[in-house]
Design a protein around this nucleic acid. Structure first.
Length: 568
RNA sequence: GCGCCCGUAGCUCAGCUGGAUAGAGCAACGGAUUUCUAAUCCGUGGGUCGGGUGUUCGAGUCACCCCGGGCGCGCCA
């Protein structure tokens, strides 16, 4: 199925050829409804290239443009733009086409990639907190979208399960552990012993040294320490799973840092051998002398004491993902503070001859109402599970107010979709690089660009079908007369143009904003155009529009990892 | 010192590769409901796009310099 955009672009290309001109500029949705539905700046670009009057060129192009019932005669406007307005009949036909397509018009990628997406990556022995929302939710949405577009996605949870923190955890386990507390709430107890050990270590050099020894024993394969480590990892994973279940997130593989442990010596040897790394002040270091930006920022891959670090693991991770998993691309959904680190890692990968497409997909922070990093009142990280439960609690309160007659079971199911959806949407509807201020009232509001507003549009449609008591009519012809109908139809046809755009720059907010516009157009239509009370053929047409709107909302939100309720 | 990100309406934010008179939502004000979920819709007011210089037919967008905020830069992850 072809979108209006690509149909028009082809026609434009033909017109240019017939006018003896090369392809130029671009054909995009109109910047303003006054200018029609699509516009091209081809004549402006060509005018500049050839030193000719753009308006004259535009006229020449328009004269050779075959509209073919698709749109009205293109109009030349302003400095030389060409504007296209779709004919309602063409919109009606395309809408039917989209309705019959189980992909809602969205084409699969021409050259599918195998892409590893690295997102989430919580640390063992620490509960997941707000800091993990963005990576997790953004990574999951990108994975869903890439997968839907036909890419082969491998979702990888790069868990922090092998850091220096284990020296302290093991020391705490051996000296401070309360077994009963561990049974009651495992992660809380592990965090407690970790924190307490950390405190002791800062003030007491002997404790610090003891922790170091525990870490060395662990890394040397000491049985007792390995057992403790294994148990901590398992308990932490159980805790992560609870959150993933709430968020409806799954991973294909969970290769944490420990997975790469025994590959690290080989990595360092290889880099030394190839001359990419060298020994400096007793450590093994990679310099980036020919890169002005990195010239004064070397990267240590083996410490003076022989230990490996984060950077070593990340080099090994690139190896595994490309050599073993055969990835064409790796997307790292990791916060902006690590930009430098990934530049270094990617630079090494290129020097080693890897050609895979490596992307660091960065994002900003979540701030509290005070515009500082979001923390609890006591200054701690807000546990993610608490936050999600709070979201559901608040959603329940609203539902009970608005729709008290729902059964308890119904409410519970709805509340999860609304509460979790609100948290996810608040994140995804905003450009990922901007820090955003976390506000319960805003994200759960029924007005504005929020998940509940979009979900409500869906619910209203479902309500119409319940009321009608009939299944969706199979239609082969739509009649679009009212401007609200035509606008909605156009909007729905744009779904296929919007979704692929997200991956241009990894911006799910493009899809979120589109869905908001769909819901807006639908509500306008809903006010202006009665559905069930209309005579045929309007009634069937409108039912079909409703049906397609519901499908686009459900599919679109689904691609963002957000569910829709039938009632709310 | 070097580098990265951000700065757009009172508030929260869109504006991908430079395109026409800069847009939403909230808040404010004014309307609409015998109607499929008013949980909505329609309308009004609101801007030196942090400041400046430059590049060009055209700059919120690109380059350079400032201002303000955040972050990162050999032995943490």
């Amino acid at each position: 199925m072809e979108t209006f955009q690509s149909l028009l672009a082809k026609k434009l290309s033909n017109a240019l050829k017939n006018a003896g001109l090369p392809d130029a500029g671009e054909l995009t949705p109109a910047s303003d409804p006054r200018f029609g539905d699509y516009q091209t700046n081809a004549a402006l670009v060509l005018g500049k290239q050839r030193g000719e009057n753009p308006r004259v060129l535009a006229e020449k192009i328009v004269a050779r443009f075959d509209t073919d019932d698709l749109c009205d005669a293109p109009a030349v406007a302003g400095p030389g733009f060409i504007n296209f307005t779709l004919r309602p009949s063409a919109v009606a036909e395309k809408t039917v086409e989209v309705l019959r397509d189980d992909r809602l018009g969205i084409a699969e990628a021409k050259s599918p990639l195998r892409v590893v997406i690295d997102f989430g990556s919580p640390n063992v022995a620490k509960p997941m907190h707000v800091g993990h929302i963005r990576s997790t939710v953004l990574g999951d949405a990108l994975a869903r979208i890439a997968q839907f577009l036909g890419h082969e996605v491998i979702r990888d949870n790069h868990i922090g399960d092998w850091g220096t923190q284990f020296g302290m955890v093991i020391y705490g386990w051996k000296n401070l552990l309360d077994r009963r507390a561990l049974q009651r709430n495992p992660l809380t107890e592990i965090v407690r012993i970790y924190k307490e050990t950390n405190q002791r270590a800062t003030s007491d050099p002997e404790v610090r040294e003891a922790c170091r020894q525990e870490l060395i024993k662990l890394q040397a394969g000491d049985r007792e320490n390995l057992d403790i480590w294994n148990e901590c990892v398992a308990l932490s994973m159980q805790d992560f799973e609870l959150v993933y279940k709430l968020l409806d997130i799954h991973y294909d593989i969970q290769c944490g840092e420990s997975f790469y442990h025994d590959r690290l010596p080989g990595v360092v040897e290889r880099l030394l051998k190839s001359g990419i790394a060298e020994i400096s002040e007793g450590a093994v270091v990679v310099f980036f002398r020919d890169n002005p930006e990195l010239a004064d920022k070397p990267l240590i891959i083996r410490k003076r004491d022989g230990g490996f670090n984060y950077a070593t693991t990340d080099v090994a991770t690139v190896d595994y993902r490309i050599d073993d998993l055969k990835a064409d691309a790796i997307w790292y959904v990791v916060g902006a503070p690590q930009i430098l680190h990934f530049k270094q890692i990617f630079n090494i990968a290129r020097r080693e001859g890897y050609t895979a497409d490596l992307r660091h997909i960065t994002f900003g922070s979540i701030l509290g109402e005070d515009r500082k990093l979001m923390k609890t009142r006591s200054g701690e990280n807000v546990p993610l599970r608490d936050l999600l439960e709070e979201a559901c609690k608040r959603a329940r309160k609203i539902i009970e107010e608005k729709n008290p007659h729902l059964s308890d079971d119904e409410k519970t199911a709805i509340v999860q979709k609304i509460g979790i959806g609100a948290v996810k949407y608040a994140d995804l509807s905003q450009y990922r690089m901007t820090d955003y201020i976390f506000s319960w009232d805003k994200m759960l509001s029924l007005q504005g660009n929020t998940a509940p507003y979009l979900q409500n549009a869906y619910v209203r449609i479902r309500s119409i079908f319940r009321k009608a008591g009939e299944s969706v009519p199979k239609i082969d012809k739509l009649v679009l007369a009212d401007s609200a109908e035509i606008n909605l139809g156009k909007r729905l046809c744009q779904f296929a143009e919007t979704v692929p755009q997200v991956l241009n720059d990894f911006r799910p907010n493009i899809l979120a904003n589109y869905l908001f516009e769909v819901a807006n157009s639908f509500h306008t239509f809903y006010e202006a155009c009665p559905v069930l009370k209309s005579p045929e053929p309007a009634r069937s047409s409108r039912l079909a529009l409703c049906d397609l709107t519901a499908q686009v909302l459900k599919q679109g939100l689904g691609l963002l990892g957000i569910k829709v309720p039938e009632k709310m």
